[in-house]
Amino acid sequence: MTIERVLLDYGSGGQASHRLVNELFLKHLGNAVLSVLDDAARLDIAGPLAMSTDSFVVDPIFFPGGDIGALAVHGTVNDVAMLGARPRYLTCGFILEEGLPIEDLEKIVASMGAAAAEAGVLIVAGDTKVVPRGMADKIFINTTGIGEIFASPAPSGHRAAPGDAVLISGTLGDHGLAILSTRQGLSFDAPVASDCASLNHLIVKVIEAAGDVHVLRDPTRGGLATTLNEIAGQSGVGVFIEESLIPVKPAVAAGCSFLGLDPLYLANEGKFICILPEANAQAALAVMRADPLGADAVRIGVVRAEHPGKVVMTTPLGGQRLMGMLEGEQLPRIC
């Protein structure tokens, strides 16, 4: 390719658009379904199905441990997988800002291709629009995913039951802190990379080993604290967790300590919460720990009937407090 920057023409549907599709998108994302280039993808898939959509606007678009392209695949693959499903197909929509270096776009699309291959999903439909400079920030990506539910009954946020064990697949806050460390005005260096990864293969193994898994959730925006509160609310149960058992990397804890943030509210992009009958917890943990994506998996608490809708934290001192939902995003603070 000789062009260097995305021009408005590339979203026009004309020759320039076609070149972009053929020379860049198909090169990295092409497969038997996508490369037909009809108006819609023809799929052969049977229900019950899980479907999810998400839009990705992360800033910066390249960050330690990943980029917006990989994130757009992992994020939607994980959402579909959390229903006890095998993600099969993704669609992707791109909003590109005029002037985006083609080199950056290609890196991002290549990264999506690699992430899709790793997750075993096909990208079967796509769309690209280019907006004038300043009307979007470099690149926004929407992905929609669909997959076949194999778990029966399927996990759901409504199924946490008293007596269940609460497991987490690894350390918390890595993605959120990695992004923060790149923010202008915060100026710190942390040896922390985003944890962004597709969890679908591990989810299959966990369900096969543990049988009935009541809840699977990936604690993305709002972190562990927010997601557990959502589950407590949906299921009408109390979630009781032990602070000393919750895995947080020392560097994440340290970065949070001087910014005045709580790592349990920071986003994760490669972790899941697994709530299941206590009797199956050890089997699930063993499978998780045998996989690099779940090496730090631990049991962090239990579900009880008391305090329905709330998350109760037992601190290392043995005290109890609520771990509530935040009103909005966490901001670095000095007091």
């Binding site: 601190t315 001192l317 043995g318 109890q320 407090r321």
Partner: peptide, 9 residues
């Protein structure tokens, strides 16, 4: 005092 759970102890 609240975060450490001291308030409840």
């Amino acid at each position: 005092i609240f975060h450490s759970g001291l308030h409840s102890l």
